[in-house]
């Protein structure tokens, strides 16, 4: 670990440590001071992980605050509805909490959380077909808008595409979501899904083919 990182870790840990005894870190948590939490919020991800591994559970709260939006968006894109996405976001962070001591630091914490998130989503969609939110496009479009018809048509198309994506096989859906929405490279997707780059490209090709077929089938 570099001196700078170690120093940042110690700063983050020092921000927390004076208020928390060993017992409280293990069980019931004492509320840390506002100043301590503020200092944790200023620490970078690596320092937060170090502080957490040193026993500062409040550092994990800051990690959650910092990354929950990205994890939620990933889950929403897999599942297509708010309720399941928020439940799954919670599961992702509980898994991350249990596995954080295995975080090697060779990738950014956000990337590692993504991997945890994708695996959690894949497990979930393998067990349960997602239920999409039934939002009518017209609800979102102001009928007085000059391009109202065009906007409604665009929203209808978006709803149809989301429904079609939700019907794709899990790995094809994962590949599509990670490539188009999360803008991950084929190589990174292969690493997350535990497959080869060639397999990812084949999955992507088949995902688009199936999507085209599903969109043609819609009433």
């Amino acid at each position: 670990m570099s001196t700078a990182v170690r120093s940042a870790s110690m700063t983050a840990f020092a921000a927390w440590s004076p208020r928390v005894s060993e017992d409280s870190a293990m069980g019931d948590r004492q509320a840390p001071s506002r100043e301590a939490v503020a200092r944790l919020r200023e620490a970078d991800d690596r320092a937060l992980v170090e502080a957490f591994l040193a026993g500062a559970r409040e550092a994990f709260d800051v990690i959650v605050e910092r990354h929950q939006r990205h994890v939620y968006q990933l889950c929403y894109r897999f599942l297509g509805n708010h309720e399941d996405a928020s439940d799954l976001t919670q599961d992702v962070f509980v898994r991350a909490f249990k596995g954080l001591r295995n975080f090697k630091g060779d990738a950014a914490l956000g990337t590692w959380l993504y991997r945890v998130g994708v695996n959690t989503c894949l497990n979930r969609v393998a067990l349960k077909q997602p239920r999409l939110e039934t939002i009518e496009p017209e609800q979102h479009v102001d009928s007085r808008h000059p391009d109202a018809h065009e906007l409604v048509a665009r929203d209808e198309r978006a709803v149809a595409v989301r429904r079609a994506i939700a019907r794709l096989p899990p790995k094809q859906r994962a590949t599509l979501v990670l490539r188009i929405y999360q803008e991950m490279s084929h190589e990174d997707i292969a690493a997350v899904l535990g497959s080869s780059e060639g397999a990812v490209k084949a999955n992507f090709f088949h995902a688009l083919g199936n999507l085209k077929r599903l969109l043609r089938q819609r009433p």
Partner: peptide
């Protein structure tokens, strides 16, 4: 065209 459609459908409603 499909990739563009998928990208356009990816907006996550802000809770």
């Amino acid at each position: 065209a499909l990739v563009a459609d998928v990208a356009a459908a990816g907006e996550v409603p802000e809770p």
